[in-house]
Design a protein around this nucleic acid. Structure first.
Length: 927
RNA sequence: GCGGAUGUGGCGAAAUUGGUAGACGCACUAGACUUAGGAUCUAGCGCCUCAGGGCAUGGGGGUUCGAGUCCCUCCAUCCGCACCA
């Protein structure tokens, strides 16, 4: 073999790894473990583009590096295979989503294999596989059988709750439950029918049924997720979407709000990502307060973070959707309020959000009593109050809250200042520093002291208490769709029961059409005999017709990889104890408040119930930046089939037009290719500059319609997988968003050619020397070993590629072909460019894969300089450079510097006040 | 509005702890070898200046012998949340 030929080498080694099961990982307690995980892809019909593998390449590099370092590495891959596009395709074509999914997966696998990843395919999981979703259903059952004990701060088995109810009723427990849960005694519990007991328990279970609003599209006959709805219309088809209440499964993630927040402190995630989760959880510390209503038994409950401003409350405001609105309206105001509520209901969520400037509201006719000063305050309905947050009612303090202020100004309600020196002539002042005025017994206190005092008062009078509120809502756990996991629940009457564990999995049934039934049931309603007969009974009961949401299968998959073929358990306890959790997780930040939050939630439940030994699933998380498309443009002269090169376009009236990026090389248009691209361009004419047609470009999202999609297969065919891998890393920092730009790829390809030539003589024959390595060679190598190792520790892959280039350049300059040097160098480069290094490694005569080679350690001895050059500065300005031996002390360097002629001249006989010698860097004399 | 990031040559970018800013690569220029190759090798490549030297990390100010890095302030771009009481 002569020249470096990736087309021969790469398939050869991919085949070798496959045959030898090189990447198979199993428990080995003699070695430390390392678990590298990628967010598994949804296999879409479009296949992979060059942006997808970015994170996989990074995790692959770390995996291979860790393996060379002696770790037992688990690096699996699988597919998040339930999802909407396959179902959509099924609705249109009638093809079963399983077939579409299977085809897409095999395409994805082929593409992934071409890149040479060190995946252990034996551990592959597919969420749509019954042997996988059996355990998703099993986990659902564990969650169903749990309740959350706030006193113990953990989930416990529902049987323990039943035992408590039997002993003490529910008076003494502090559990997460529905808001409308009544108090009951032991006797009352025992007096309930079995069904009523079940309905009561459902109010405590960590997954429960409740009425929730969904986006219902009557024309499509289906429920849509929030991101499928745009401005009140379905994204697909543009049909109107309405809010509709449906009985659905939810997961009580709110019970875990505090622990999800606290847990962030213990994990190594990026600050922006943690911040996103914190915002999503939305903790706010305040107080809950109840206001009596004049001439009524009702009380209005509010949540406030500023109870110190209680004396500044001049009105109350309730959300139009809240029950308060109807309850508090007096007969005189009935007509006005009903009209307002009806009008508010027609405005879509989005209208209300985008139109925050318009102030609207109406008086209910009722008055509340401020228990702190006995004052009568009017109760209004206003759509700036949200039904979904807090209690759906607020105490309005116009002096301290801008929305209350605007409302008060608009309806001419009083504004009472309660903080000294706050200027509220133009707007509210929400700041919390100052002393209280007009505030009765709070006068003279600071805001913080006033909060404490006001809460004490409320507690004494029994009208309120300190409270922590969270913004996070329970997660809806049902989709009225076909292509998802069936929920392992059947109904006796309206009471849900779990199927027997032995009957798992509940297989997704075949149906004739992937659409809802005529009477509006989900697609599963079409299945024949989709029923369940409990053990020992003869009657068949209907099964739940909703399927699980997309996030179900992805909320535990990292555990299944550890023990993918286990038929007896979702994971073997010992296997889990060995692999623990994920050491490095790489994926996009778009999952910040979805997958990553749900996964932490489920993991905590599994932890509480004793199924896993780690409370957090992902120790270290990196968000790889998206690779954007780099679109190319040609400029058509208006009204003509003539195109003008970018540099000359200012002289013409032109319209830009996307051109396929594969027709451009370094932004120069391939004219013949362009003419053949589309029939209407066959007789296109060009106005060239310097004989070339130069295209314009812009960074956009990679998409088919913009003709900027780059397929990794094309890059691999032309440049090779090793070049692709190195180049994606070389493109810039992993976390950064960056456009794909093939312009620089030649440099990386050249580097691999140079590496190849280090091992070959001028005739292209393999030739290495067995001579002892020279000092320069050792220095170059050890510098590289050190830098590459440090770079991986801080996930700086782009700088490592530079380091390799420098090393290869240095060795070429030294005409080095030393076996020992090159052998170590190969191991260092192998995580990045596995194929070429395997080939050269085997040419060196090694019989095992380079992935099992020991990573070389560097020796400081070789890194020492003979002489060090110190710039000598006087008052920070550079004067001269001195050469000194590397092992001189600071004082000795200082002496040499002071003795230097140029420096002497500058100092003009003066003695510097201060001399700063920075080791191996610089000498600075301060006069 | 709130929160978070980012800002360095023609371009992608380095600079890990405050210590010679621009490593490495692309593009560009010149040359060598060839006798067409999108090959390889060598050299040059921030700006100004005749030079000594000066100016440069979004703008302005500060701390320091010394600032891309720390502090204050303003500007621009991107992302997330958004009437959250």
């Amino acid at each position: 073999m002569a020249d470096y030929n990736h087309r021969v080498i790469e398939p050869k080694w991919q085949q070798y790894w496959k045959e030898n099961e090189t990447f198979k990982a199993s428990v080995d307690t003699s070695k430390p473990k390392f678990y590298a995980l990628d967010m598994f892809p949804y296999p879409s019909g479009a296949g992979l583009h060059v942006g997808h593998p970015l994170g996989y390449i990074a995790s692959d590099i770390v995996s291979r590096f860790k393996r060379n370092k002696g770790f037992n590495v688990l690096h699996p891959m699988g597919f998040d295979a339930f999802g909407l596009p396959a179902e959509q395709y099924a609705i249109q074509t009638g093809q079963h989503p399983a077939i579409t999914t299977k085809e897409n997966i095999s395409r994805y696998k082929e593409q992934l294999e071409n890149i040479g990843f060190a995946f252990d395919w034996d551990k592959e999981v597919q969420t749509c596989d019954p042997s996988y979703y059996k355990w998703t259903q099993w986990i659902f059952m564990q969650i169903f059988n749990s309740w959350y004990d706030y006193d113990a701060s953990k989930a416990r088995h529902i049987d323990e709750l039943v035992a408590i109810f039997e002993k003490d009723g529910n008076a003494n427990i502090n559990a997460a439950c529905d808001d409308d849960t009544p108090d009951f005694s032991t006797e009352e519990w025992k007096g309930m029918s079995a069904d009523d007991q079940q309905l009561m328990l459902l109010k405590y279970r960590l997954t429960y049924l409740s009425e929730t609003a969904v986006n219902w599209c009557p024309q499509l006959g289906t429920v849509l997720s929030n991101d499928e709805v745009k401005d009140g219309f379905s994204e697909r088809g543009g049909f109107p979407v309405v809010r509709k209440n449906m009985q659905q499964w939810s997961m009580r993630i709110t019970a875990y709000a505090e622990r999800l927040l606290q847990g962030l402190e213990s994990i190594d995630w990026s600050e922006p990502l943690k911040e996103m989760q914190r915002n999503w959880i939305g903790k706010s510390i305040g107080a809950e307060l109840s206001f009596e209503v004049e001439n009524s038994d009702l009380a209005i409950e509010v949540f406030t973070t500023r109870i110190d401003t209680i004396f500044g409350v001049t009105f109350m405001c309730v959300a139009p959707e809240s029950d308060y609105a109807a309850q508090l309206t007096t007969p005189e105001q009935k007509e006005a309020v009903e009209a307002y509520v009806a009008q508010a209901a027609t405005r879509s969520e989005r209208d209300r959000m985008s139109d925050v400037k318009t102030i609207s509201g109406v008086f209910t006719g009722s008055y509340a009593i401020n228990s702190y000063n006995g004052e009568k305050i009017p109760v209004w309905v206003g759509d700036y109050v949200l039904a979904g947050y807090g209690t759906g009612a607020v105490m309005a303090v116009p002096c301290g809250d801008q929305r209350d202020y605007d409302f008060a100004k608009h309806f001419d309600l009083p504004i009472v200042p309660v903080i000294k020196d706050a200027d509220i002539s133009e707007q509210a002042d929400p700041t919390k520093d100052g002393t209280m005025i007009n505030s009765g017994f709070l006068d003279g206190l600071s805001c913080n002291d006033a909060i404490t005092k006001a809460i004490e008062f409320a507690e004494e009078k029994g009208i309120g208490k300190g409270k922590i509120n969270y913004r996070i809502r329970d997660a809806i756990f049902a989709r009225q769709r076909y292509w998802g996991e069936p929920v392992p629940v059947y109904f006796k009457g309206n009471i849900p029961h779990l199927v027997d564990e032995a009957d798992l999995p509940i297989i997704l049934p075949e149906i004739d059409k992937y659409l809802p039934t005529e009477d509006g049931d989900p697609p599963l309603g079409r299945a024949e005999n989709f029923t369940y007969t409990p053990n020992g009974e003869t009657e068949a009961y209907p099964l739940e017709l909703s399927t699980m949401p997309g996030w179900a299968g992805s909320s535990w998959y990292w555990y299944r990889y550890m023990d993918a073929h286990n038929n007896n358990d979702f994971i073997d306890k010992d296997v889990q104890a060995y692999w623990e959790n994920v050491d490095l997780y790489i994926g996009g930040s778009e999952h910040a408040t979805g997958h990553l939050l749900y996964s932490r939630f489920w993991n905590k439940i599994l932890f509480d119930l004793g199924h896993v030994n780690q409370e957090e699933p992902f120790k270290k998380l990196i968000n790889q930046g998206m690779i954007q498309g780099r679109s190319n443009f040609v400029y058509r002269v208006k009204g003509k089939n003539k195109f003008v090169s970018k540099g000359l376009k200012k002289d013409y009236d032109t319209t830009p037009m996307h051109v396929d990026v594969s027709l451009c090389y370094n932004d120069e248009l391939n004219l013949d290719g362009f003419k053949n691209w589309r029939p209407d361009l066959a007789d296109a004419e060009f106005i060239l500059e310097d004989g070339k047609y130069i295209c314009g470009w812009e960074v956009e999202k990679m998409s088919k319609s913009k003709y900027n999609v780059v397929n990794p297969d094309d890059i691999i065919e032309r440049y090779g997988a090793d070049t692709l891998r190195l180049y994606e890393m070389f493109l810039g920092p992993l976390e950064q968003f960056k456009p794909w730009n093939t312009n620089g790829i030649d440099g990386v390809k050249k580097f691999l050619g140079k590496l190849w030539r280090l091992f070959h003589n001028g005739n292209g024959e393999f030739e290495v020397s067995d001579a002892a390595p020279s000092k320069e060679e050792l220095k170059s190598l050890h510098k590289t070993i050190k830098k590459a190792g440090e770079d991986i520790d801080r996930y700086s892959f782009n700088t490592s590629v530079s380091t390799f280039m420098i090393c290869v350049n240095e060795l070429s300059a030294l005409k080095s072909n030393n076996r020992a040097i090159l052998s170590d160098l190969l191991v260092v480069i192998s995580p990045y460019a596995p194929h070429i290094t395997e080939e050269l490694w085997s040419l060196l005569g090694h019989e095992t894969s380079i992935i099992d080679a020991a990573y070389p350690t560097y020796n400081e001895e070789y890194l020492k300089e003979d002489d060090i050059e110190y710039p000598v500065m006087v008052n920070g300005k550079m004067r001269t450079k001195i050469q000194v031996a590397a092992d001189l002390s600071k004082e000795e360097v200082q002496e040499v510097a002071l003795a230097n002629e140029t420096v002497q001249k500058w100092l003009e006989g003066k003695t510097p006040k201060k001399v700063i010698v920075v080791p191996k860097k610089i000498v600075n004399l301060v006069v």
